[in-house]
Every structure is written in C-alpha cells, then in structure tokens.
Design a protein around this nucleic acid. Structure first.
Lengths: 709, 594
DNA sequence: GTTTTTAGTTTATTGGTCTTA
DNA sequence: AAAGACCAGCTTCAACAGCTAATAAACTAAAAAC
C-alpha cells in the first residue's frame, strides 16, 4: 500500500478586488476576515500534528500559476497555487499576501484547478477524504456555463470531493445571487459544510486540537476459568497525556539567539561511590535493596522466590456488587474499553451478553491483567458501559493493591463542638439549588450545562499550544498571557454567579468562620512569598526601572540628568521626554507623530510581554489628544491597530482595550468622529464584553474630567 | 516560652520522626492484649525495615515485674529496643521476646513509664522532628489510684514539651473504658474534647494503625475552599493511596557493595570544530571530554517541532508555559447531580480526599459537615477548580460526599474526583455490527449462572502486589536468615474450585467457537481461522500451489505444509526432509513441483 | 533536611513463524 | 509442547536500506510540603 493519509484539503482564498472592501464602515473587509480565518485553519492543522495534507490557493491573484493554466493557455487566470498539497507549514501563513489585489478570479475555475491537483498532483499518496475549503464572497460571478458546471459537479461527486464554503452565509435569503445558489448546490451535493467566519472562528477554530494518537488494540483472551477464553481487544479510552511531545534541547547561539548549529547538548550519567567519591564504571554497578540499615545485593536473592507473573493474560477473578467499588480504591491512570475481538461476532455476542447481565445484576467483574509475559500483574474492575449513542463495552479500571493504601487517620469530626444545625444544612441546600450547573445558561445556548464532562478543553493544554503557535509566527516576541477564551473556562457562569449571591450572603451569617492568625511557623514562608512577589514585580517593571543588566542603570541615570538637552522623544522615558519637549515649546503637531513612532518602536522591541512603557506612553498621548485634538490619535490608532492585527499582536490589542486606550470617543471630545468603540477586532470577543468596554471608556472620560479639574 | 517556640520553629523541618512504642504488659486477667500488641509492633517494625525508613523507633514494656537488671531506680518498665533506626538486631530481639517472662508488676503504674520515654527522647543523639509515644494498652484497667495524679502531670509535661501521646486501644469491642483513660486522653490532647479510640483486636489492623501513627501525617495541600465571595473554609487535600509503593532500591559496587549515587552531567559539545576528524574519534570519550563544556541555563533552548520548524523557547519561557495560572486554590463553581459521575466513563487518575482543616479557619469543620450533609441529601456533587500547589496545573474536580473511605475510621469527607478534559478522551474505532448480535434468553441464563457462581465480596485491601510480596520474602530470606515466615500467597489468583462448577460445555455450545469468523489477515495470506494456530488439514490446493510457484511465493507455506506437499507429490529422488531448513524445502518445491 | 508527589523522561516490547531442546 | 530466536511491512525500475508507532514499565529530576 502506498502511504496513506487521512485527509487532504485545499484552501481557496479569494484575494481579488471583490473582497477588498468591507460591507460596513469600520468592519473588516472580507479579505481581512478570510485571512485571519485561513491563518487559524492552518495553525490548527499544524498544531494537531496529524498526517493530513494541505494546499493553499489564491483566487484573484495578480499572478497566474497553476497546472491547468499551463495546459490551456489563457485560461484559469489569476489563480495561484501558493502551496501545493503538503504537510502544513508556517510558511503558508507567512506567505500570505498583505493586501487584496485589483484582479479578479473565477471561483469555479479555482475548483477545477483544485480538483485537478487532487487527481494529478498527488502521485503516490492514498487519501481517504478530499476537501476543498472555499472562501469567497461570490461577488465575482463565474463565467462558466451551466453545462460545464454540471460536469464539474459530477466530477466532484465521482471523485468524492467535498466542498466547504467558509465566510458568507450562503443560506442568507438576502444574499441569494446565482453564484451563491450554485455554491449551495455544490456544498449540498458533496456533503460539504458551510459556516460564516464568525461561527467558524468562535466555535470550530476557537481552540486547538491536540495531536491525536491512533488507538491500538491490546488483544488478549478474556479467560473465565481454565477453559473459557473469549477473544477481546482493549483500547485506551481515557488518559491524561502531556500537551506536547518530549521537549528537545539545544544550545543558544549567542549571535542569532536561536539554536546553534555547531553545538549540541549531551547528557552523560555516571555512578559515584559514596565512600571514596570515585566514578564507577557501569559494568561494576549492581542492584541492591535497602532492608533497614542493611544492604542486600540483588544477586544474593534466591531467584526461585521471585514472582513469576506468567503469560500475557486477562483472567477473571470473580464478580462483585458494583457498590463495592468506590472512587477511593481506583488507582492508576485512566481507563480502557474492552470490546469483543474485531470481526469475531461470537466473541462480541459473549461480551455483549456479559455486559447486559452485569448491567442487570448491578455487578462488576474483577480481573487480573498481565500486559505482557513476565509483567507484574495488575487488578482491574470491569464495569458494563451501555451508551446507545456511543459504545457498548466493558470499562476496565485499575484497582489499588493493599500496599498502596496509606491507612491515614484524621482528627475526629463527630464531636459536640462540630455539630451542625438543620438551618446550616438548609443554607447549603439553597446554595446547591442556586448553583445548578445543569441550567447555567439561557436556552439560547446549544446546551444549558456548564462544564460538560470530557467536552471542555483543558486551559493549560490550550495555553501551551497557543504559545507554540505564537512563537512560530512571532519569533523573538515575548509570550502572551492566556487568552480570555481560556481564562473563562475556569470561571463561574455569570448566571450561576448571580443566583448564588443571596444564598452565599445567608451562609455567611449562618457560620462563624474565623481566620486563625498566621503562626510563627508561617512567618518565614510568608516572607518568602513576599519576596517572590517582589521578584515578580521587579521582572514586570524591569524595562521601566532598573534592570539586572549592568549597563542599563548607567544609561538610565544620565538620561534623567541630561533631560534638559533632549531634542527627541526616546524609548527610555517617552512620557517625560514628551513633557519636557512640550515645555520647551516643541509644537504638538510635530510631537504627536514622533510619540506614535516611539510607541510603535517600544512595542516592537518589548521584551517584557507587558508593554508597560508603551501603554504608559499611549495613555499620555491619548490624554493629550483628548484635550487638544482627537483626530491624530484616532487616525494613528486606526493604522496601528491594523498593523497589530496583521502581526497577530492580539495581546497588545487586548491590552489597549483593557487599559481604555481605544479611540477617543465623541463623548470625550466632541470633535471626535468615533461614536463608540468599534474596534476592528471586536469579533474576537464575546458580545457581552462590548458593553463592558463602553462602560470602561466612559469611566475614563470621568477620570479625565477629574484630571482636568 | 515564646522564645522556646521560636527556637523550635526555626528548625521545624530538620530531623527525623521519633516514636517510642509503649506496650502495656500488665495482664492480671491473662488477656491476649500484650501478645497481640507485641506481634503488631514486630510487624510495624518489619514494615519500617522493608522501606528502610529513617524513623527512630524504641520499644518499652510497662507493668512488668521487678528485675535485677531493671533500669536504675525505675520500676516496672523494661526497655527492649532503644530509640534507634530500626535494624535487624533489634527486630530479631523484639521478635524473640516473651513478654510474660518479664513478670508482672504488683500494681500498674504509668507515670514512670512515661517518664522513661521522655528520657529516651532526651538521650537520643539524633535531632528529632517529632516525638510520639504510642501506647498499646487496654482501656479497662487503670493504673493504681496513687499513680493517677502523677500520670496526669506527666502527660501534661509531655504535651508541653511537644511529645505527643497516642493510645491504641487493644481490646475486644465491648470492653468498658475506665474514666482514668478518658481524662488521660483529654490531658494528652491539651485539655480539649476528643474521642476515645475505637477498640481493635486484629493485629494487622493494629499494625496498620501503628505504622500510620508513626508516620508523618501529610496533606498534599492545605487550601482555602472558596465557596463564594467572602466565604471560605479551610480544607486539607490528601491522597489516600501511595503513588509509589515500591521500596528503595540502590545501586551498589559489584566488588565492595558500596552504595553508589548517580549524577548526570549535561554538557554542550561542538560538532563542527572537529568535523574533519574521524567519526570514530567522536565516540572516543577522552577526545570528547576536551570539547565538553558546561551548559549554562541561560544558553539552553527547548524546542518542539511543528510545521516543519523548530519552535524554540528559553528555559524561563518553558517554565512559564507550565505555570500560567494563579495560586493554589479550591474554588466552587456549582453543583451537578451525583448520578453523572460514572466511574466507568470518567475515571482518569487516582483521586484525593478532602477533609476540613481548623488550623487556618476556625469553624471550617461545621461548615464542611453542613455542606457534606446538604450534598448527600440533595444527591449532588460539587464542581470545583482545584490547583493543589503553587506551580501545578489547575483542573476541574467533582467533590462527592463519602464516608469511611477504604474502610478507614473516617466519618466523613469528600472524594475529590478529577474530571477529564476533552483532550484526554480518545475516539475509538466502532464496528456497526451491533445489529447482528442478538442475545437470547438462553445466552443470558448461562451467563448469569456463571456470574452468580463466581460472586465474591470485594474489599480494597484484598489484593496484595505479588511481585512486591515475593520480593520482600526473597530479601527477608537473606536478611532474617533463620526466621521462617508465613508462606507467600498470591492473592491475585482466585480459588480455582469455584471455576470447576462452571458449565463450560454449555457455554461453549452457546457462545463458541470463538475466532471462527475472524477476518482474513490479508488477501494473500491464509485466513486466520481460529485463535489457535492453524492446523494443517492435509488437503492441498493444487491451484494455490501452482499460483504460488509462479509468483515465487512458496515460502508462504509453513514447514509442515511444505513437507506435506513434497511427500504428496510422491517424488522419487526426494531426499530425507527431516532437518532441512525452510529455505531448502522451498527450493525443493520449486525444483520438483513445476 | 527528608519525604512525597508528579511531571517528564527513557527503554523495551509489541506479532507471527520457525527452530530447537 | 514450550521457549527463545528472528524477521517482521512499506517503497517499486529493482533491490536496497531505512524508515515506522503505541504502549507499559521503569526511571529520574524537580518541586513542594512539612
């Protein structure tokens, strides 16, 4: 068999004149949205580390570069294969054009080119499913005639291509152009999918898909006594796995700050004799046991006394009441599902029958498992799982051995002074009713349950993947803080939060809870904590104040003294420079662009990840502009934000929002043209954060008023 | 007083724990209590030996008769093992002791025994982090009246000098507890109300309790459980199971049995400078060592391969990746019906156990109990975010109310159950053959018979790790030489008698034979007909043979089959087939069968 | 300082067939 | 009959070498708690 690949997809992105403008003012153009979306799709593909192939095609490109155009001169123009089918790369994202073109391309042509590439561009690779993701607003109608289109569609069904359309709502009745109708037909006929940018970004593409592993069966006979052997396969169903593979190590090249090509890391393990500190050759190392204070070499042990676990096996020990198995006696890591052996219907029948019986009788099995010949045996419970939507199987859960039980003791709770009243219990009952997570959201959501088990993503995993993608696309830039999307995963749903307020207040009155003064014992730790906090602070404000680098202070000190003579705004203390220059009579019209430039520079070279200085400078600039003229600030911000968006500096963008450094509104200065905060990146945030931002901006206004007083 | 405390606190975590076991040998009614206490103490010490623990342990008897050798001035107290690291000599000595041989005191006195214990602590040269007197006694026979006052005072002194006094009540269930011991316990508990320890009689149980008591009572984390804004209680998170139940293994020098430590040296090596050198030289260690330089943390890079590129992070950045969220906390998010917590669907990792902690917030226990009760009555579990330590990743847990976990003497608490995230779930291959499978009443009846025959009562402590147990036996065979201990029993294997009763024939008839419908492994290979090895049936498919000869695939036959083919062809000049390699047989087939 | 836990490694084996003692 | 040795499949001009992957168990290092 040739190399097999699960999926191959070609992204077709319209970058022509027809996608260059936005429908509404201030809103992103189709091109901008599509670009973001494509970047996310590619990023997700890369991070998922599957074996799938990806190609990227530009529709409406200035260039024409595709196989079909080479074959038929003059046809298939303005279609450029940016990347032919291959494992997805960061380059695909980086190579993306910054701006839409003035050209136009025929989307139907693009489909043909993509289809051709699937048929002829893939030499040996076998592909299970072939997808084309089309992103166009269909504002450039196809020139192909009905017959040709019919042929293309037939070709698509024959070859089992799937067409997905991302971007426009092709079911929006107000947009039913002929081309959209056509797209609908294609999508439906090829069993494709469609989504708007907003939906795609908010639901399908919001989080990373972790690298997947193909499950491998562990095949064994489930034996019941010496003579009954049922062939089964067990698959790992649940397991906590690290977000990324093992980290590799390299040496930093002092010049490029990237991995050195001339130096590598090597680790060497050695044994040292504790008696004379000599290094011992691995040959002379033997294993031994500590028994009390005595040392017993392994070799002296009677080998016949050592346990022989036997062959690979899964042997039934017996059956017991399900109620005997509690959470506390489960040990190990995760669970496996057992099915009757693939293709063996008799085995499946037997297992199915066992499952049903156990289920009816409320019993579970206990088995002894030897994973491989000679491996230590482990005990497991096998519980019936009957889930009509999913699996009918036995769930195999590891049980603890006696040696693992700690036999802990706890101070007694059944003392008089710990008795609790009915009122107190009822207080908690009220809280329970109020904080029902099964009804945490309005019906407008797809489900009303919050934190559905095994359906929510892991914030820590997502953050690591975010950081890797960020670093790939922003080399040299400091890592971002966790996204809000990730942080909200650990927050109480707003509705539940609200409902809980009253019962919580009641509870506070029902119990006497007194904080015990920190003991002397804790003093030291507390001090350490404080120290740690101090360190953190130091790190954060390092670029502003002192730094650990020896030369920074020497630069900084003269600056404050030299300040009388400065002629330009520097990046070290822009706000003071600005103030000084103003007081020296430098005209505002000259200073504002200079300040803006400096802010951009600081953001570019910021290594602290907090952009404290840049934001301070922005705050100052903004305040100045609120007083004088909002236009320069607003105009510059517009450009700056666009640039930040392009360079995926989402962290700066959100900081600008958070620190209320957005556009100066009409409310703040009547000559502003901005009615409200219509940040170009608003769709990145949930709707409910928008009013928040408005509120915060109003606060600023009040603050500013106070400032002026 | 305060300065004392400060002094103590300053070195609070230096030293090892110390325990003196104080066995009551006063036995006027000839109960088994001293004997059981003795056995349990031996077993506890054996447990310490097995784990090569660093705890200091001493053993004393009290209520024994006067003896000439008896401790100077001390009456009725016999020190068997001095306060020391558990060692083989002490263990053997303790084992061989016959408690009754020390005779009986005329009157039971406790104060002197306690005083002796405190002296043992004082005389101990090793710095101790904790001092515990573990009394094994019945609670129905108090010391003589005249000793009461002295004992109370002694206990009070001990408590003040930070020596804990604990009692294990070695008796049958229904022995009445004398008031003296109630007072004693209260005194030992700093005057606070406390519970009388439950009587235990099983020596393994006593052993467990002693081992536990002599062990540091460690919480995985002590947290503030934030129930709501401005409402928090103190809790401790415990793991009830050990993560590594393995004893210490060490590396030794082959010749001298000297203990070895291992050290890992990480160096950077230049692979360019000497590129022209022979590859062999690179392997040469002496040559390499010259180029080896120590690696500074600051010049270390960690990277991952994604999208065909190395994505690099500095050491600091990598740390930040695993530590992006806040401080340790347990925060309530809400509640869900208890029924959704299915072990068979969501078990991911061994859970923890949650218990109230009065040390940080007083009144926690009452609130904890009220929450526990409310959850039980409403049949719900609490859903929380848990971050156990400063730098650990937070995750979502369910708190399920429970009592007596693992059969322990713990009234209430919550199981802390880790809830899996989507990344932990694997999609499994499904076969849509469910429709073909019809379980009949006969199937069901047979299966239920089998299940019922094999029913038993599961207890969490019923399975011992046989590998570990046999290892102990093997080591003890050497260490204790003469001692013949109980034979090793493999608790992971069931009693086979019950399996004799199974109606295997009926089962086979109804469900078997298995493997008959197994899929063909591949087009060219023989069908994997059964889970047993394919038996050669004697029939030869001439077409298949010719096919294989022309396709040069004769080697796909087994040796048995090849021999059979050659014999079947009835070739005259055929040499003896025994002892030939498969390849020879294959060649013979090509030679003769075309 | 010691113990405990956990995260993160590394390492060996997996399967079927054939030969051998 | 059981145990251990040994080569496994996939490319395709063909033959070659040189890849490939999940998993359990054993292990180390590091962090945090007392």
């Amino acid at each position: 068999m040739p190399p097999k690949v699960d999926q191959a997809a070609i992204l077709i992105l319209d970058i022509g004149r027809n996608v260059s403008t936005s429908d509404e003012k201030g809103k992103k153009s189709f091109f901008e949205e599509a670009k973001e979306c494509v970047a996310r799709v590619i990023e997700r593909k890369i991070m998922s580390q599957d074996k799938n192939l990806l190609g990227v095609m530009l529709l409406g490109s200035k260039k024409t570069q595709n196989n079909m155009a080479e074959q038929c001169d003059g046809a298939f123009r303005h279609i450029e294969f940016l990347a032919e089918l291959q494992a997805p790369t960061w380059k695909m994202i980086r190579d993306f054009p910054e701006k839409p073109t003035k050209s136009r391309g025929d989307w139907m042509d693009a489909l043909v080119v993509a289809a051709d590439h699937f048929k002829n561009g893939l030499s040996q690779v076998k592909v299970n499913s072939k997808k084309i993701l089309l992103m166009t607003n269909f504002m450039c109608p196809t020139c192909l005639d009905e017959n040709d289109i019919e042929k293309i569609l037939n070709g698509f069904t024959e070859e089992e291509f799937e067409l997905d359309v991302i971007g426009p709502d092709i079911y929006d009745e107000s947009l039913k152009s002929e081309d959209i109708q056509l797209a609908r037909k294609f999508v439906e006929t090829t069993n494709g999918e469609t989504a708007t940018f907003e939906y795609a970004m908010q639901s399908c593409l919001l989080f990373h898909k972790k690298r997947t592993v193909n499950p491998t069966p562990w095949n064994v006979d489930l034996s019941i006594g010496p003579n009954i052997k049922i062939p089964v396969s067990s698959y790992i169903r649940l397991r906590d796995e690290p977000a990324v593979k093992t980290w590799l190590k390299a040496v930093k090249d002092p010049v490029t700050l990237t991995a050195s090509s001339t130096e590598g890391i090597m680790s060497h393990k050695m044994h040292i004799n504790t008696e004379n500190q000599e290094v011992v050759e691995p040959d002379s190392v033997i294993k031994g046991y500590h028994y009390g204070q005595q040392i017993i070499p392994f070799a002296e042990c009677d080998k016949s006394l050592l346990y022989e676990p036997g062959e690979k096996s899964l042997s039934l020990y017996g059956f017991t009441d399900a109620s005997n198995i509690n959470w506390q006696c489960l040990s190990g890591d995760g669970l496996a599902y057992i099915f009757g052996r693939k293709g063996d219907n008799k085995a499946k029948l037997a297992i199915r029958c066992l499952i049903e019986c156990l289920h009816e009788m409320s019993l579970v099995g206990i088995v002894r498992r030897v994973y491989n010949k000679g491996n230590a045996p482990k005990m497991f419970a096998i519980l019936p799982v009957i889930d009509t939507n999913n699996y009918v199987c036995l769930s195999m859960i590891p049980l603890c051995y006696k040696e693992e039980i700690k036999y802990m003791a706890f101070p007694p709770t059944n003392l008089k002074r710990y008795a609790c009243s009915k009122e107190q219990v009822d207080g908690f009952k009220e809280l329970i009713k109020a904080m029902d997570l099964m009804k945490a959201y309005d019906d407008t959501y797809e489900g009303t349950e919050a934190f559905p088990i095994a359906e929510t993503v892991s914030p820590s995993v997502q953050y690591v993947l975010d950081c890797i993608a960020f670093r790939a696309l922003n080399p040299g830039k400091p890592l971002p803080e966790p996204r809000d999307d990730i942080l909200t995963l650990f927050k109480i749903p707003p509705l539940v939060q609200k409902r809980s307020k009253e019962p919580i207040e009641k509870l506070k009155n029902l119990f006497t809870l007194t904080k015990v003064e920190a003991k002397t014992r804790d003093r030291k730790r507390t001090q350490q904590q404080v120290d740690a906090d101090m360190n953190d602070q130091n790190l954060e404000i390092k670029p502003d104040n002192q730094s650990n680098d020896g030369d920074m202070p020497t630069i900084q000190l003269p600056v404050t003294k030299k300040s009388n003579t400065i002629t330009k705004i520097g990046t070290i203390d822009p706000v003071n420079d600005y103030k000084l220059l103003i007081s020296n009579g430098t005209p505002l019209i000259d200073l504002i662009p200079e300040m803006a430039k400096v802010i951009e520079n600081i953001v570019d070279c910021s290594f602290d990840g907090t952009y404290t200085k840049a934001l301070e400078a922005m705050k100052h600039l903004r305040q100045e502009c609120v007083k004088a003229d909002p236009a320069p600030y607003n105009n510059w911000l517009q450009k700056f934000k666009k640039e930040l968006t392009d360079r995926q500096k989402d962290d700066v963008l959100s900081l600008i929002n958070d620190r209320q450094l957005n556009f100066i509104l009409k409310a703040e200065n009547s000559s502003s043209t901005h009615e409200n905060v219509d940040s170009t990146q608003s769709q990145l945030y949930e709707n409910d954060t928008v009013p928040d931002a408005t509120e915060l901006t109003m606060d600023t206004e009040i603050n500013d008023l106070f400032d002026e007083m | 007083m305060e300065s004392d405390e400060e002094n103590e606190e300053f070195q609070a975590w230096k030293g090892v724990p110390g325990t003196v076991v104080l066995i009551n040998a006063f036995n006027p009614s000839s109960t088994e209590s001293p004997a059981i206490s003795h056995v349990a103490t031996c077993r506890m010490i054996r447990q310490h030996l097995r784990f090569a623990s660093n705890h200091y342990i001493g053993v004393c008897l009290y209520g024994t008769g006067d003896s000439e050798a008896a401790s100077f001035g001390l009456q009725n107290v016999t020190e068997i093992c001095s306060l020391n690291l558990p060692n083989l000599d002490d263990y053997k000595k303790l084992q061989s002791v016959n408690i009754t041989s020390y005779g009986q005191a005329k009157d039971l006195k406790l104060s002197d025994a306690l005083w002796h214990c405190s002296k043992m602590f004082t005389n101990c040269k090793k710095q101790l982090v904790s001092r515990t007197i573990l009394m094994l006694t019945r609670l129905d026979i108090p010391p003589v009246e005249s000793d009461h006052r002295a004992t109370y005072m002694r206990v009070s002194d001990l408590v003040q000098s930070k020596i804990e006094v604990k009692i294990i009540n070695v008796a049958n269930e229904d022995v009445p507890v004398d008031q003296f011991y109630k007072n004693f316990l209260s005194e030992a508990n700093g005057g606070k109300e406390t519970a009388v320890p439950k009587a235990i009689w099983d020596c393994k149980e006593i052993e467990n309790m002693m081992y536990q008591q002599s062990h540091r009572h460690l919480a995985l984390a002590r947290l503030s459980f934030e129930i709501g804004d401005g409402l928090a209680i103190g809790v401790g998170v415990y793991s009830l199971l050990k993560s590594n139940a393995l004893p210490k293994n060490v590396n030794l020098h082959r010749d001298t049995n000297a203990i070895l430590t291992s050290a890992t040296k990480t160096v950077k090596v230049s692979n360019e400078g000497n590129n022209s050198n022979k590859v062999q030289m690179d392997v040469d260690e002496a040559e390499n060592e010259q180029k080896q330089l120590p690696v500074l943390k600051s010049e270390l890079l960690h990277y991952q391969n994604y999208g065909g590129e190395r994505i690099e992070f500095t050491d600091k950045e990598k740390k930040k990746l695993s530590n992006p969220f806040g401080p340790p906390i347990l925060k309530l998010l809400g509640f869900k019906p208890a029924g959704i917590m299915c072990k068979e669907k969501w078990f991911l990792k061994a859970g923890y156990f949650l218990y109230p902690n009065e040390d940080v917030i007083e009144g926690s226990t009452v609130a904890f109990k009220a929450l526990h009760q409310a959850c039980l009555e409403m049949k719900v579990v609490a859903i929380c975010v848990l971050c156990t330590r400063v730098n650990s990743k937070p995750y979502i847990v369910a708190l399920a109310p429970c009592g007596h976990p693992l059969g322990l003497d713990v009234e209430i608490g919550f199981d802390v159950i880790r809830i899996p995230f989507i990344e932990s779930v694997r999609q499994l291959p499904t076969e849509d053959e469910g429709d073909n499978i019809n379980v009949s009443e006969a199937h069901r009846r047979t299966m239920k018979d089998i299940v019922n025959t094999l029913k038993f009562d599961y207890k969490p402590e019923m399975f011992e790790n046989p590998k570990l147990q046999s290892q102990y036996k093997a080591v003890e065979a050497i260490a204790l030489a003469d001692e013949e201990l109980e034979p090793f029993v493999d608790t992971t294997k069931p009693n086979m008698e019950k399996f004799q009763e199974l109606e295997e024939d009926l089962f086979d008839h109804l469900f078997g034979p298995f493997g008959a419908t197994a899929p063909k492994r591949s087009g060219t290979k023989e069908a994997g007909v059964s889970s047993k090895r394919t038996k050669f049936d004697g029939e030869i498919d001439e077409n298949l043979l010719q096919n294989r000869i022309s396709n040069k695939k004769v080697n796909m036959y087994t040796v048995e089959q090849l021999k059979h083919i050659l014999k079947w062809k009835n070739i005259q000049s055929l040499p003896a087939l025994t002892g030939l390699k498969k390849n020879d047989l294959v060649n013979l087939v090509y030679e003769y069968c075309c």
